[in-house]
Structures are given as structure tokens and as C-alpha cells.
Design a protein around this nucleic acid. Structure first.
Length: 303
DNA sequence: TTCCAGGAGAGAG
DNA sequence: CTCTCTCATGGA
């Protein structure tokens, strides 16, 4: 990949980006903060608005900041440093996931900012996408810093200290429901240094997951989301209602506990099961043809 | 009105 | 260990 500065200081251009689809990546339910305007995506990363456009194998990124985000950081955020082709080849073990892979080729797992990911997925429990997005938007408007760029207005995600100072009632007022206490507690724990985010980033997957689960309101599923969507642990498998449904109906063909699904999936898809999960999840949401799915998973098995 | 959503915690058995 | 009930909220 070749990197050039084009037009002005605020614009970054990444050329020859292979195996990457911006739309699939930003609209696959792992992030709640990206908004599409025509063919451009606006979002807030590292305290700046980013405007990202994909033209073929070229990414054009504009920043609201005078000194824009480092290209290395952007590569990491979009997971461009990984060889997606070999990852998808490794998890392409049957005709069903092959359809998912072919349909959404180029979808990558993001490496999002840790605190924002922790907070967002605490709010995600027993909740739906649209509402999670609106709650996060409200929280950011009230407790974040206002940013504007190219006619787009958005806000930085609230700092742990800010939410800790705000208190449970102010968080509740943003529509979080009973999760307000969980979010305030997590914010306070990070703000007072009892949970060090930088230390969390250095831990391996089992350690990080174990540490996250200690927080109230974070169980296995949310911890796995944080491990997969922020910390880059590709063996993490978040089991939500959709993933549970897929494995029970398509693969195991019976009721199954999370433990059974974890064990089966890790054995079946291998070390990149997190990527397999993302394709299955997004595919099932967009084309829930279950009868066909069962048929395909059992047939044409490659392993 | 009831059910559901990228669940977790508490309690019972 | 597993099963069940409850927890706000808004859209279908």
C-alpha cells in the first residue's frame, strides 16, 4: 500500500488497499458511531472528525484536525495490517460461511478505542442497534466535546472522568435505562485508576477477558465484544442472540449452551473464529434464509 | 398489548 | 453446574 498526502495537510490518501470494503466494515454492527452521508462516512476517532471515502482500492480520509490522525493509526483502526485473504481462507470451511464471505468480502474487524468500546458494549446489553446508537449520541452530545467539519457536527466520546463526575442520574437521563449504574461504575473504575486501560491492551486474550468481566455489567459476551472489536483478539467469540441462533439452527441443530457453542466454534473455525463470527452475524442479519443455511452448512464441507 | 433487542446478575434447585 | 426472573426503553 502506498501512502500520499494529497491536496492539503488535512487529507490522507491510501492507495492500493486490497480486500477492504468500507461500507461493510462500518455498517456491520461493531461500531455505533459512523454515519453515511452520500458516499462518505463521518465518525469521530482520536478526538477528531474523520471523513472517509472509498473509491475502488483508494481510501480518501479528511480530518477536522490540523494535524490529522497518523496513517499508521488509521491502518490499525481499520485492521488493514492484516492479511484478510488468508484469514478468510482459514475460516472458509463450508458452503454456508463461504456465501457469507463472498457476499461481504472486505469486511474487517475494527480496532476501536478501548474506553469507547467498553462503554458502548455495556450499553448494548439487552438492547437494539438503533437505540444503542441514539444513547451513545446523546451521551456524546451532553458530555463530549463538540466538533464540526465539512457541514458535519459530532462530539468526542465522553471521558471516564467526565462520566464519573456526572453521576448515575445524569447518565440515566440519556436513556440508558438500568445500565446507567453499570456505565457510571465502569467510568469511575477507569477514572480512579483501578482499571488501567494501557495495561489491559498489553494482556493476552484470556487475561483481558477475565479482567473485563470483573466490571459490573460486563459478562462473557460483552467482554468478548471488547476483546474482538477493540483489542484485536481474533479468537474471541461474542455469543449474542444472533450467533446463538446461527449455531443452534445451522451447525449444532439443537439447543446449546454458550459453553457448547464456544467449544464447537473454536474447534470448527479455528483461531480466527472472531472473523468467522462477524461474517456469519452480518450475513444472517441481511439474508436470514435458515432452511437454506442448514442445507449448506452440512453439505460441501471442506474439512 | 406483547415481544424483542449484539445480556447480566441474583437466586433457586 | 443450569434454569428462571428481572432489569428500562422504544419500535414493531
Amino acid at each position: 500500500m502506498k501512502i500520499d498526502n494529497v491536496a492539503n495537510q488535512r487529507q490522507i490518501c491510501i492507495q492500493h488497499v486490497t480486500d477492504f470494503n468500507l461500507k461493510f466494515t462500518l455498517e456491520s454492527g461493531q461500531s455505533f458511531r459512523w454515519n453515511r452521508v452520500d458516499d462518505a462516512y463521518f465518525g469521530v476517532v482520536e478526538a477528531q472528525i474523520l471523513k472517509i471515502q472509498q473509491r475502488g482500492d483508494t481510501l480518501i480520509i479528511d480530518s477536522s484536525k490540523g494535524k490529522p490522525i497518523a496513517t499508521e493509526h488509521l491502518h490499525h483502526y481499520l485492521d488493514l495490517h492484516r492479511d484478510l485473504g488468508s484469514i478468510l481462507a482459514a475460516v472458509n470451511v463450508d458452503a454456508y460461511i463461504e456465501q457469507a464471505i463472498n457476499r461481504f468480502w472486505g469486511m474487517r474487524l475494527l480496532n476501536q478505542e478501548l474506553w469507547e468500546t467498553i462503554a458502548s458494549f455495556i450499553l448494548s446489553q439487552n438492547n437494539n442497534m438503533a437505540r444503542i446508537r441514539s444513547i451513545i449520541q446523546l451521551l456524546s452530545e451532553r458530555f463530549g466535546q463538540r466538533l464540526a467539519f465539512d457541514g458535519y457536527v459530532d462530539y468526542t466520546f465522553p471521558l471516564p472522568q467526565t462520566l464519573a463526575d456526572a453521576g448515575v442520574d445524569e447518565i440515566f437521563a440519556c436513556g440508558t435505562g438500568y445500565r446507567a449504574r453499570y456505565l457510571w461504575n465502569a467510568a469511575s473504575t477507569v477514572a480512579n485508576g483501578k482499571l488501567e486501560l494501557e495495561a489491559l491492551k498489553r494482556m493476552d486474550y484470556p487475561e483481558a477477558k477475565q479482567e473485563l468481566i470483573k466490571l459490573e455489567g460486563i459478562g462473557e459476551k460483552v467482554a468478548d465484544c471488547i476483546c474482538l472489536f477493540s483489542l484485536g483478539h481474533l479468537t474471541a467469540l461474542p455469543i449474542d442472540v444472533w450467533i446463538k441462533r446461527i449455531f443452534e439452527r445451522v451447525y449444532l441443530r439443537k439447543r446449546a449452551t454458550s459453553r457448547e457453542i464456544q467449544e464447537f466454534a473454536k474447534n470448527y473455525f479455528g483461531e480466527f473464529v472472531g472473523y468467522a463470527q462477524q461474517y456469519l452475524f452480518h450475513y444472517a442479519q441481511n439474508q436470514p434464509d435458515w432452511a437454506d443455511a442448514e442445507h449448506l452448512a452440512l453439505r460441501d464441507k471442506k474439512r
